[in-house]
Design a protein around this nucleic acid. Structure first.
Lengths: 223, 223
DNA sequence: TCAAAAGTGTTCCACTTACACCCATGT
DNA sequence: ACATGGGTGTAAGTGGAACACTTTTGA
């Protein structure tokens, strides 16, 4: 288990750490996975999950591994974010933290159950006290997430295969932090060529059933 | 002199290397600075200048230092690009290469004069045989440069303080690799709020003198 | 007076935004 | 029948793209 090496660069350890900012959307809220440090420095504070790069492991592979260790999920949106060298003031001799960000469906996640280095979800608007300078990383991650949403299919990673337009809109509203117009949203999405209409509908209450859509591709699309 | 550690990750060296893709525009051509390797591996091939991160040096500082070592210039557009872990197949145990890209005015540059590890400018459309997988880095750098040009003042770094609209357009055309419409270009630039009109004009030949403009800010602007 | 680059407006189209009502269903 | 969320169209504004002629200067 390598979550103990969470965040930043370990004292005396390897010079390259990989951090993964893991986002999800639950109850209309954008949340991020953090891990509570159980050892100095910054003991008790919360940090972005991460660990050292293993010999001969690529950065992408390390990020995939880290994400799987923390959440059990694979094949989701995962992209490199930025590389920081000055997050951990206490690390001797510097080193670099290569950060990634990922989007996962809340209902697919199995968080590790441990009392030390315990993981937890936090609304990005109500963060706990963070270790190192992780708020800087989260700020960058959030900005990138918003801009990725605008021109990629990133949201596929937050929805089931088939979904109603209103579910998709809810994801967008949660991430962008504002309400969107239903008609304009639908028009824009359908024009984007990211979605495909299906013949399925979902009956979810005392109202008209919603037509279901799926993403044309459920893999990251480069622009 | 640390140019000898050019490109990739040195065998047995530190785990973090910093590479700087240095672009300039000369004679209507986008060119990139490369260094010819004078030792294995890939001896004789050309590589992006770079070197190891010094202890306690930030990544940004290392990039600034590298750029100054190779060109003598400072205070230009310089931005982190991407971090690669799989450029140098021959490096043992992996490691990471944090890449940056910079834009410099050709007439401000003083290249190091050495016969080994000699630097040279190459048109991006006529690259020599590259060491490691540097073509991947250049491809990413070029794409980022194009997109940065669209919504930032990055071009300030390629022009003198005062310049004619046609000079600016020439820079854009060289980087984008296509002709632009004069009227649309001018309108878009003036609407962007990146430029300021000056009262100066330049007489440069048997034709009407051009009004000169300057950038509102000559520092990188975040969006 | 000629050659050369500077400078200038309008039309069309595509896309974004704002905005309000009817539809299908379950209880 | 009513409450609930699903689904639809139009008009105004904005920004990009296409397109050609006049102006100022030096030689």
């Amino acid at each position: 288990m390598s979550a103990e090496t969470s965040a930043g660069v370990d004292n005396g350890g390897p010079a390259v750490a990989v951090l993964v900012v893991i986002f999800t959307v639950v109850e209309g809220e954008l949340r991020v996975l953090l891990i509570q440090r159980s050892a100095p420095p910054d003991e008790g504070n919360w940090a972005i999950p991460g660990g050292a790069l293993i010999a001969d492991e690529s950065l992408d592979a390390a990020a995939v591994r880290k994400l799987a260790e923390e959440t059990g999920v694979r094949d989701v949106f995962l992209e490199q974010l930025y590389t920081f060298s000055d997050l951990d003031d206490s690390a001797p001799g510097g080193g670099a933290a290569v950060t990634y960000f990922a989007l996962v469906r809340n209902d697919g996640v199995r968080l590790a159950e441990r009392s030390a280095w315990a993981p937890g979800w936090f609304a990005v608007n109500a963060l706990p006290v963070l270790a190192f300078h992780n708020e800087r990383v989260l700020e960058v991650a959030r900005a990138r997430l918003v801009s990725k949403l605008e021109y990629t299919n990133a949201a596929y990673s937050l929805l089931p295969d088939f979904f109603a337009m209103s579910q998709l809109q809810g994801i967008y509203e949660s991430i962008l932090g504002r309400k969107l117009d239903k008609r304009n949203f639908r028009r824009r999405m359908l024009a984007s060529d990211l979605l495909r209409e299906t013949q399925q509908t979902a009956k979810t209450g005392p109202h008209r059933p919603a037509r279901l859509y799926r993403f044309a591709r459920r893999t990251p699309v480069e622009f």
